[in-house]
Amino acid sequence: MASISLTVNKKKYQIDADPEMPLLWAIRDLIGLKGTKFGCGMAQCGACTVHLDGEAVRSCVTLLGRADGQEIVTIEGISDNTSHPLQKAWIELQVPQCGYCQSGQIMSAAVLLRENPHPTDQDIDEAMMGNLCRCGTYTRIRKAIHRAAEIMNG
């Protein structure tokens, strides 16, 4: 057990936990933010994607110790009032089906758009291949990322 300090969605948390516990379970069960999902536990599916110092880490394999003192953003913190261009585009194109993977999809897409405001289809593949969707919303995710880029770029 160790005392770990995390900043999650701009709020500071001091938690006493096993530093080997994946960040995912700390976010879900200790901090209580459930939007970040458990899908595979081995960085295969991307459902658990959060931003750790701005990067789209897979929280199911990121040990809590690595996040100590770092800045974390989860789906709940990506915008106020569901106003992120990606969220708007996701709603406009009615992307989700079951929705379980979509937090991770949006967190990955956010890094893509930050680094490349005008992504091509290939850029989208290169950013999003780590996020699985069993329902099959891929073609809409692609369209929604293009749409979000449009919204973002005015």
Partner: peptide, 17 residues
């Protein structure tokens, strides 16, 4: 690249399993 940078999944050390 983007959301698939190596260190997004690969940690400083191996994870058992």
């Amino acid at each position: 690249m983007y959301a698939l940078k190596c260190s997004n999944c690969h940690q400083p050390k191996n994870i058992p399993g």
